[in-house]
Write a protein that binds this DNA or RNA. Structure first.
Lengths: 343, 343
DNA sequence: AAGGTCATGAGGCACGTACCTCAGACGAAG
DNA sequence: CTTCGTCTGAGGTACGTGCCTCATGACCTT
């Protein structure tokens, strides 16, 4: 059964009005009585009409502008996210989408808020942010939304803000998975150090929550040490881990739910206990890959950056159709990597 | 740096010819001297011109027709693939793509070849097949390609045919991953039964190859029993597994690299040895999910059917642009599922 | 030289939407 | 009554491409 999509012409005919009126309703232009607008809305709903985004962008001879705000610094995962955006510049252009990548200072809420406030709806239809949970960022998101810019969160969510969508993994589930693996690795129980980047990052806080809950429920023999905050910095993370290992000679495992994995791996190797500790980290990047290969890290939980960017772009496109309803996206999978299934 | 995409007008101007000539070259219509065509090709390359697929489909007022041939029967994974196609009917229509789903008799090469031969290029731009490696299918693929239908393989590849692309996981790597997990589960070694659907299915043959190679290299203490072929049928698979378990009271593990997992799980439970056997299966479906939850199955390796269909659709779109070069697609991830990270 | 074929240019209409102008129709206020 | 403002319809042009017709000129054949 091949059915043609409804067009504005069909809507006009069905509503008994002219094309111009349908156009005014669709694009929120003034000069339509409420009763008439009602008729048009009804026809749109009845026919299941949805604007043809491609024809629309073509007619406007304008690309969809999507701006990605991604933290800079030495966090390899953020680097991978940024690369994933760059990789799609060309193919996005083929779909009339213009992607822009801006690196913002990591863990600097004021800088991100300012950048958001500087966005102009004329040069930005949609903004994607990797944000920590701070009042000034929430305010900036709400302000951008009021200016007509759709904001979506990437990696770490910002509930309670006007963000239209969250693109990322279920971080509570990720924390639970880490706990479940760690519990199996340590059937006798023991101490496990937990290192976060910052608990202001909701993804980190959620992973910790999931990890702690699953341990309590299923592996009460495991004692959690920490969390400590390494601010996603390799040097700081390394010295924190070194200190924890020195202080606890009976440490049995480490769960780094944030970044700074290069520091983690050096500290593990410097301790001389690398092979005897069960270690779980996040994001498949150069340091964690090296850690897996050398045996310093046992498991890496990964959120596919390419998949996240792909879904972000798809969601931005759907949002551009201007529906009020939330946009459906494919869920992002949590990848589990051992030394043997490295991509 | 915002750069406008090149259009046919730009190409015409750059090549010093008229729009009509560019059009003739682009659409392979006759009436252009080789020397002139050369000039146009050169301008296209120089400007990096690529046809705007959306404008093109709109101008033709014609949707892109993509036909999926997916085996029917009781194979839950194939059911999931089919559902994944159906789920995208609507969103594909929004991109001027008309998807069609046809279920063909599983493991019946003649039926699939006949279906392929019945395709008309007027009502099918691209065909996606899940095929076993048989000469008559290869011949049908080549014939379809000559008729102007792009054929791609899904799940299981068909090298040596005129298929334009393969969408699926790296099955050798999947087999290696299974071996690596099994090896760790059985540090003392022991007998592991291997069950396939059909070794005419290249994905199954490749998994076996990877499994066997990784065992030989890394876990020589493990002895492989089989493979036996259960033809992806639950009853047949169940009785095969039951027989193997009865014959080998010292069986330590089972690797089912094909389907028929409902039969696998019943046989395991009927044997009374479910908990003491390490079991690895493929595809996260109802039976394997139940197996994970009950503990009868330890690990499931999964190829995300939604992701495969998404990539297949994206690849079909790219192919429609008519480039001779192979089309780049995102790789499909091999998911690893334990009881604790079930989606 | 006349007729033929072939290569090419010029231009138009169509697809679905955006955005513009202009002309009426209508009701309310003066 | 006129005048104004608001609502609505009619129709045009544009976006990038496909596909069509028609005209022109060059070259070949007889």
């Amino acid at each position: 059964m091949i059915r043609r999509r409804a067009t504005v012409h069909d809507v006009a005919r069905a509503a008994g009005v002219s094309l111009a009126t349908v156009d005014r309703v669709l694009n929120g232009r003034p000069g339509v009585r409420p009763a008439t607008a009602e008729k048009v809305e009804e026809a749109i709903a009845r026919l299941g009409f949805s604007r043809d985004l491609n024809a629309s962008l073509m007619a406007r001879s304008r690309d969809l502008h999507v701006v990605f705000f991604i933290p800079d610094g030495t966090n390899e995962f953020m680097g991978a996210l940024a690369e994933a955006v760059e990789k799609r510049f060309a193919s996005a252009l083929a779909d009339r989408m213009h992607l822009e990548l801006r690196r913002t200072k990591a863990l600097d809420a004021a800088a991100l808020a300012e950048a958001l406030n500087g966005l102009d709806a004329k040069t930005c239809d949609c903004a994607l942010i990797v944000a920590s949970e701070e009042p000034e960022i929430i305010a900036a998101v709400d302000a951008a939304h009021r200016r007509g810019i759709a904001v979506m969160t990437l990696v770490s969510d910002l509930p309670g803000s006007a963000r239209r969508n969250f693109i990322g993994i279920d971080n509570v589930a990720a924390g639970r998975t880490a706990a479940s693996l760690m519990g199996r690795f340590l059937p006798q129980g023991g101490k496990v150090a937990v290192v976060a980047g910052s608990l202001h990052l909701r993804d980190h806080a959620e992973r910790l929550e999931g990890f702690r809950a699953a341990l309590t429920e299923e592996f009460p023999a495991i004692e959690l040490v920490g969390p400590v905050e390494g601010h996603d910095d390799r040097t700081e993370t390394g010295s924190l881990v070194g200190k924890l290992l020195a202080e606890h000679s009976d440490m049995a495992g480490v769960y780094n739910l944030g970044a700074g994995n290069a520091g983690l791996v050096s500290a593990l190797q410097a301790s001389g206990r690398a092979k005897s500790l069960r270690v779980i980290a996040h994001e498949l990047t150069e340091p964690t890959r090296a850690g897996l290969v050398s045996g310093a890290i046992d498991v890496v939980l990964d959120q596919n950056p390419d998949g996240e960017i792909r879904e972000a772009i798809a969601a931005a496109r759907s949002l551009a159709l201007g529906t009020a309803r939330p946009v459906a996206t494919d869920p992002i999978e949590i990848g589990i990597f051992l030394r043997d299934n490295l991509r």
